[in-house]
Structure formats: structure tokens, C-alpha cells
Write a protein that binds this DNA or RNA. Structure first.
Length: 849
DNA sequence: CTCTCCCT
């Protein structure tokens, strides 16, 4: 007999807490029996008062099998005491006491029945996976609990989650822990890291094949190897099949056909040893029989939503600690096992403990729409375990506004209609809008297109590459399969069956009959446009380069048959090529699209009068443009601009190209420096006329003169000094001349120009001889500011720079005089400068004069 | 070298 499951040790404590506590956390590793035994054990607890319970599972497969196992334990059929409900499928009866649901179902149910009438307990299974729906469902359940149902109990179950941290976030929730039941797995690390990210990925298939070969030699039993994705799996498969003829090598990843997946999961019929090369799908979703050895690359490909571009990109990263343990555990299901980790023990200490919650890494448009229906205005107000990021919420609100689902924070009737379709808001919008089309024509096509875009590409990898991005080919494959029940070559029939079930649901909901005629590519395009108005693309070069309505550049594969279409409606694309293939630049790639007729763009075309400046030509332009987002459909010259608009455009030109467009004379620059100096000396009654300030108030001084400007050179013909002078009132202009004169008279009778610089004394550069007889430094600003004298030699070389003329005559001049007299012997160098006559002239000229 | 997995 088997030993009793570990969950029984935890049951008494769990039952005690649930009597009084609204929420309890159960921390239990796999194999403890928490998702089968536990719900049944709680069924007759007094606090449940005969009400039903809900149990949330992250996957449909898990929901069905958990319901089946519990029914088995009761000796019943599914749908009696235990039932389940997943999208478009349910087995529930009036007798049902435990409903197993996939997570999204609960969100929808709460919308219609926020009190959860007749439900006494909600169990969150596998909460450590932190899926978006589990986080949302928990937040909404807590709302319900606090506002409407204080008798409702919540039980959060988790295998690896840090229960203490969760308890702290949720507010001191009691935690009950159990041990798991799992055989020991001996873990081996690599001596050195064989793969260094991000560049070492190319060698991974070889490294993995070597490790598997050693494991085949050293151990018995089947081997499960984890690789980041299909590309590495297929390359490792080729290497291994070449070297090991007696071993069965099975790839295993999501987009394989059902038969290929079965071959990997079940023991080999011929009794050969099996090597399964798997993606993360084998971590939780699929269990492989007979595995004794796990070889883990330690890498995973995970999505990252970029709220700036609105696109999701895949990144190859090191796995987290909990994933690595989950992978290793797959070797210990039958008996003691072995795990080889292709990373060093040192690197192991640097792994992140767990994956980021999905809410941080995904498109939040569906979540935002749900919350709008729930009546939430500020998303941050809900009681989140992890709050959704503001950038992604902002992006979601922009998209939902564009789709007409939100008006500010309010749900529109269109948004309400969209919520009747359990799919992404983009596809829901496609279905709602298609239903409004006048003839109802194309509605069956809308169902097919929405269903196709809801799932992965039904064309298998190689076939998809050959077929290119044309979505219409996928519709044809679906319709051909539906009409003949035969798949075309290279089509994943399991995917088509899944897609057809969804399409059939939409047809039922919209009351439209199935259609299997050959689809029109442009009709497909018009439908795709409804879901992805931001991804309408216009050709840039009549080849493979396109530009999206949101301004980004995108590219079709060189050989794609869609190339040369002037307009495309793009459904799927990736972001900037971040994998190191430099030839693509930062241009995204188009994976799925359909051509568009320009006529079909009419409803979303906007008209603009464009008054602008052609930067290249340097001329004013006036055009009438028809646009879709940032794309221009047509552009025609239009009537002359109004003077006001014209002036505005030209002011903007000066702001972007700078004041240097104008002809700044020395006099204009000096005027600016004089006013700035007075502002510093005498206070802010004097206006700020710095370049920055002038740019900020172009309308005050430049605008009245702009009617003479229509091209770049015209700016240089404007008289800057007279324009900026107008910034000073008449009285201030007189004061300016008096307080900061342009010239000063010196003893020789010359009038010498001052050189002003804001923040420094004005400079008076004058020949020394012209200053004889003057005792003190000249001043400006009503005698308050001494000028900076640059005393010049007869050759106009500065001899001395000083603000103290008195001291110069007394101390410096007598010392310098001898040398100066030798060097400039034609000029007067009197012994006593205090009484000498100032002069511009030489000795000889003086004698003659 | 076109893309891990999952859900209403």
C-alpha cells in the first residue's frame, strides 16, 4: 500500500484556520495531494454551510484532469459532485459542489455575479505561476470579500512561492506548509559555464548533444533535455540522430502535431531508449513517462511586452531557480534520478529565485477592459499582489480608446458589446464592427479571421516560411480542411481543429452560417484593419519595406509574395531585431498580414491642412493631406495660409533652427549685451533679452516682420537691431543710451566704442597715450560701474588690463616706461603722465602740428 | 535561425 499523502498532516491546521480566517495560504510541493484530496476533505466543513466551492487551474488540461481524478476518488462521473468549466466547454450539473475552472472564467463570472452567490470557498491552485488571470481573480475576489461577502473564504495554494512574502503583501495571512513526495534527484553542475549569453547560443545544440551522449553512456532510462526553443531543439535533434542509431530522439514543443507530441510522451513501441528534446512545455504542462535523467540547458525564451511599441518580444534568458528545480524534479517521478545542469555552481548562486509575475510582462489591454466593466477608474486602487505597470496600463488605455471601448475611464456601449466576446479586445472589436457592416457580408469571414488570429499559425514552421506572411492562405487552409476534413500539406490539423471550435462559437454568437468559399485577400485585409488600426502599413519602396501608421518601420521577408502591395493590414510582427542580426537594423519583421485597398481606409482617414516648413528646401509650404495615423495617402498644394498661421509656422522654424537664422550685426549683439548688463546691474525692470528669452517671446518682436519671410534666406534680410529695440519702451531706450552708452569720450578727444558682455564690466580698449592726464577709471551706469581698461601700445597690443587707472599711472607706468620708450621711440612717453597732453599722434606729428 | 507558454 502507498503511504498516506503528506496533505493529511496539514489538514487539521488548515481546517482550523479556515473556520475563522478569510484567507489562508497553503504551501505544498508537487505530490502532496493538495489539488485532489484537499477539496474533497473540505466539502463538509461547517463554515462552508453546504455551499459550493470553486477551484482555479491555470490550464484547461489541468482543469479537466483534476476534475476527473476527484470524480474517480468519489467513484462518480465528471459533472456530478465534481464538475469543470473551461472556455466554450463545461460539465456541471445542479448536484455539482466543486467546480474546477480555468482562471479567466472566474473573472468573467465575477462580472455577472460579483457576490459569488452560493460559493463558500475559492481555491487558487498553482498560484506560484502568477498568471495574469490568477492575480486579477484574486484581486477581484478580495474586493468581493471586503465589500459584499465577508463570509467568503479564499485558499491560495502554491508549490514554490515564498509564502512569507505573499503573506506579508496580503496582510498577515496564516500559512500552512507540508512536505512533498518526490524521489531524490542527484544534481550535477558543469565545471565552467559552457554557454555565455547573449552570444554563446549558437553552440548550445552541440554542447547539449555532447552532454546527452555522456548521460546515455553513464545511466539507464530515458532522458529529458530542456532547450530554450524550437530552433535549438531541431538542431540538437539532427546531431543526436546522426550519432545514436539505437536511440529514439523526440522533439517536443508547443507547435508540433499531436502525433509528434504523443511520440515524445509515451514509451517507444519498439522498446528503444528515448531522448526527449523539449521546450518549457515539459516543465508543467506535459509529463513524460519513464524519465530517469534530466539535462537542462538552463535557458528559457520568455516574452517581454514593450509598452512603447505595443509589441511583445521574446528574449533568451537564464531560467529562474524555481524553474530549474521544477525541471530537475522531472527526473524523480519514478524513483531516484539524476540531473545535469549545463551551468556552473557559481552561476547557480546568481539565478533569480522566481519568474516575474505575468502582470509585469504582458499586454494589459484585456485586463484594463475587464476592470472598466468592474467599474474601476484607477487601476492602482485595487488590492494587487503585484501592481500592474503604469506604462502598460497607459498603452492599454490608448489602444482601448482607439478601438472605441473606453471614453476616458468609462466603458462605452461598444466596449460593453466587445466584452460579450471572450477574446482579446482587438479581435472582439473586429467581431463587433464586422457585425455592423451593412450587408452582413463577410461576417463568416470575420469569424474565421478572428479565430485564426486568436491561435498560433496553423502552418507548420517550414511551410510557414515558404508561404510567407499572407493571412489569406491560412483562411484558405482552414476552409479547405473544413470542407474536406483533409489538411493541406504542412498544416497543423490539431491547431485547425482548435481554431474551428472558436470560429464556430463566433458564428453561433453572431448567428451566421459557415462559409467555405475562397476568401478575398482584400476582404481579409479590411477585417484585420479593424483589429489592428495602429498596424496599417504603407510601402516605402514598392518592395519589402513598410511604414506603420504608428510611425515604426517594418519589413517583409525578401521572398514574400505580399511584397509590392502598396498597403497592408499587419496582424503579427516583432519588435526591433534584438538577437544580434545586425543587417535588419531596428526594423521589425512582419509575420502575418493581408493586403488593403486604399478605398477601405476611408473610414479611418483624417484630413489635415499642413502648414509647414520644408527643412531641405528651406521654404514655407501649405498642403492639404489625407492621412491614416502618420501615413500620408495624398498631399495637394492648398491655398495660402492665414497670416496668423503663417507667422506661427515661421516662429516654430526659428525655434527649431535657432536665432542664427537671423543676421546678427555687431550692433545688435552689443544692444543685447548692454540690456543684459543693465538687468544685472539695476534689476529686473530691464527685460531679459538673452537668446533663450528672445526665442521664448518671438511673437513679441519677430512676428510683426514675418510677412516678408517665405524662405530661409529672407530671415537674414531682417534688421535685427531695430526689431529687438522695440522690446524697450521709448523712455527706457533713452536710459539705455545714458546708462550703457555705446561710446565713451577719452581725454584725447576720441570717442571710443565700449565692448559689453553680460556679467562682466564693459571693455574700453584705448591707446595709452590718449589717456594722459586722466586720473581715474571712466565709468558707466551712473558712475557705479568702472569700465575694464585695455591700455594699448601704439601697435594696438594690450599693455595692461586694469580697472584702476590711478594705480597704473602711479605704480606700473613708471616701471614700464623705459622699455616702451625703447620699443616705440616715435611716440611720446612723458615722465609725468598726470600732466602730459593726451594724444593720438606720434612725436613727429605733434612737432609738426 | 520567423515564435516560450497559456487564458476568457
Amino acid at each position: 500500500m502507498r503511504e498516506p499523502l503528506p496533505i493529511y498532516e496539514a489538514l487539521p491546521a488548515l481546517k482550523t484556520h479556515l473556520q475563522t480566517q478569510p484567507m489562508v495560504i497553503l504551501q505544498a510541493p508537487p505530490g502532496a495531494g493538495k489539488s485532489t484530496v484537499l477539496p474533497l476533505e473540505l466539502l463538509n466543513e461547517p463554515w462552508l454551510r453546504g455551499q459550493r466551492m470553486l477551484m482555479l487551474e491555470p490550464r484547461r488540461l489541468a482543469a479537466r484532469s483534476v476534475a476527473a481524478r476527484m470524480s474517480d476518488l468519489l467513484g462518480e462521473e465528471v459533472g456530478q459532485t465534481i464538475g469543470y468549466r473551461v472556455r466554450f466547454e463545461q460539465r456541471i450539473s445542479a448536484r455539482t459542489r466543486i467546480e474546477v475552472l480555468t482562471e479567466g472564467i472566474l473573472t468573467r463570472r465575477l462580472q455577472h455575479d460579483p457576490e459569488l452567490n452560493g460559493i463558500g470557498l475559492v481555491i487558487f491552485d498553482e498560484f506560484h505561476e502568477r498568471s495574469l488571470h490568477a492575480d486579477l481573480a484574486l484581486a477581484l475576489c478580495r474586493e468581493a470579500q471586503q465589500a459584499l461577502r465577508n463570509d467568503l473564504r479564499l485558499l491560495v495554494m502554491s508549490a514554490t512561492l515564498d509564502g512569507d512574502a505573499l503573506s506579508a503583501i496580503l496582510g498577515n495571512v496564516p500559512i500552512v506548509s507540508t512536505s512533498g513526495r518526490q524521489f531524490a534527484v542527484q544534481v550535477n553542475y558543469a565545471a565552467r559555464d559552457p554557454i555565455e549569453l547573449p552570444y554563446g547560443l549558437g553552440t548550445l545544440p552541440t554542447v547539449m548533444a555532447d552532454a546527452i551522449s555522456r548521460a546515455l553512456a553513464d545511466h539507464d532510462g530515458d532522458i529529458l533535455a530542456f532547450l530554450p526553443g524550437a530552433a535549438e531543439i531541431q538542431r540538437a535533434e539532427r546531431i543526436l540522430t546522426e550519432h545514436h542509431s539505437t536511440v529514439k530522439v523526440c522533439p517536443l514543443f508547443g507547435e508540433l502535431t499531436l502525433e509528434a507530441q504523443q511520440a515524445a510522451i509515451l514509451p517507444d513501441a519498439a522498446g528503444r531508449r528515448k531522448v526527449v528534446l523539449a521546450s518549457a512545455i515539459a516543465e508543467t504542462s506535459l509529463t513524460i513517462e519513464g524519465v530517469r535523467v534530466v539535462v537542462d540547458s538552463g535557458l528559457a525564451r520568455i516574452p517581454h511586452f514593450d509598452s512603447r511599441s505595443g509589441l511583445t518580444q521574446l528574449e533568451t534568458v537564464r531560467v529562474t531557480l524555481d524553474s530549474a528545480n521544477q525541471r530537475a524534479g522531472r527526473a524523480g517521478r519514478l524513483g531516484p534520478g539524476v540531473c545535469y545542469r549545463l551551468w556552473s555552481a557559481q552561476t547557480h548562486t546568481r539565478l533569480n529565485p522566481s519568474r516575474k509575475p505575468e502582470i509585469l510582462e504582458t499586454d494589459l489591454a484585456p485586463l484594463r477592459l475587464e476592470l472598466a466593466q468592474w467599474g474601476v477608474r484607477e487601476v492602482a486602487d485595487l488590492n494587487w499582489v503585484t501592481a500592474p505597470p503604469v506604462g502598460a496600463i497607459r498603452h492599454a488605455q490608448e489602444l482601448l480608446t482607439q478601438l472605441g471601448a473606453l471614453d476616458g475611464h468609462r466603458l462605452t456601449t461598444n466596449g460593453q458589446a466587445m466584452l460579450d466576446f471572450p477574446t482579446h479586445p482587438r479581435l472582439a472589436h473586429l467581431l463587433v464592427q464586422a457585425a455592423k457592416l451593412p450587408s452582413g457580408k463577410g461576417l463568416a469571414l470575420a469569424c474565421d479571421v478572428a479565430a485564426l488570429l486568436d491561435d498560433r499559425d496553423p502552418l507548420l514552421r517550414e511551410e510557414a516560411r515558404a508561404a510567407g506572411a499572407d493571412l489569406t492562405l491560412r483562411v484558405e487552409a482552414l476552409r479547405h480542411w473544413r470542407a474536406t476534413q483533409r489538411g493541406l500539406y504542412g498544416v497543423d490539423m490539431r491547431a485547425l481543429a482548435r481554431i474551428e471550435r472558436v470560429a464556430a462559437q463566433w458564428r453561433k454568437q453572431l448567428n451566421v452560417r459557415v462559409d467555405n468559399i475562397r476568401p478575398d485577400a482584400y476582404e481579409v485585409g479590411a477585417l484585420v484593419m479593424l483589429a489592428y488600426p495602429d498596424r496599417i502599413a504603407q510601402t516605402r519602396d514598392k518592395g519589402t519595406a513598410y511604414r506603420l501608421a504608428n510611425g515604426r518601420g517594418v519589413q517583409l521577408a525578401q521572398t514574400d509574395a505580399l511584397a509590392h502591395a502598396p498597403w497592408l493590414a499587419v496582424a503579427h510582427l516583432d519588435g526591433a531585431a534584438g538577437t544580434g542580426s545586425s543587417n535588419v537594423g531596428d526594423v521589425g519583421r512582419i509575420f502575418l498580414a493581408a493586403p488593403l485597398h486604399e478605398d477601405d481606409l476611408k473610414p479611418i482617414t483624417t484630413e489635415h491642412e499642413v502648414f509647414g516648413w520644408d527643412v531641405k528646401q528651406g521654404v514655407l509650404v501649405a498642403r492639404r493631406e489625407r492621412r491614416v495615423g502618420e501615413l500620408v495617402l495624398s498631399s495637394q498644394p492648398s491655398a495660402a495660409m492665414s497670416p496668423a498661421k503663417r507667422a506661427q509656422v515661421l516662429c516654430d522654424v526659428v525655434r527649431s533652427e535657432g536665432l542664427s537664422l537671423l543676421n546678427w550685426t555687431a550692433a545688435a549683439r552689443q544692444w543685447q549685451a548692454r540690456v543684459q548688463s543693465l538687468r544685472l546691474w539695476r534689476g529686473e525692470a530691464w527685460p531679459d533679452v538673452s537668446d533663450e528669452a528672445l526665442l521664448a517671446r518671438l511673437e513679441d518682436w519677430l512676428l510683426p516682420y514675418l510677412d516678408k519671410v517665405s524662405k530661409r534666406d529672407d530671415f537674414a534680410r531682417l534688421d535685427v537691431l531695430s526689431m529687438i529695440s522695440a522690446l524697450l519702451p521709448w523712455t527706457a531706450q533713452n536710459q539705455l543710451a545714458a546708462l550703457a552708452p555705446t561710446h565713451l569720450d577719452v581725454p584725447s578727444g576720441s570717442s571710443i566704442a565700449l565692448e559689453y558682455t553680460a556679467g562682466a564690466p564693459p571693455v574700453l580698449a584705448v591707446k595709452l597715450q590718449e589717456m594722459f592726464g586722466l586720473a581715474d577709471t571712466p565709468t558707466v551706469n551712473e558712475g557705479r560701474t568702472k569700465v575694464m581698461l585695455h591700455l594699448l601700445s601704439p601697435a594696438r597690443q594690450p599693455i595692461q588690463v586694469t580697472q584702476d587707472l590711478h594705480s597704473f599711472w602711479a605704480n606700473t607706468y613708471p616701471v614700464m616706461r623705459k622699455e616702451l620708450r625703447g620699443r616705440y621711440n616715435k611716440h611720446p612717453w612723458p615722465e609725468d603722465p598726470w600732466v602730459a597732453s593726451p594724444t593720438r599722434k606720434t612725436v613727429k606729428a605733434l612737432a609738426q602740428g
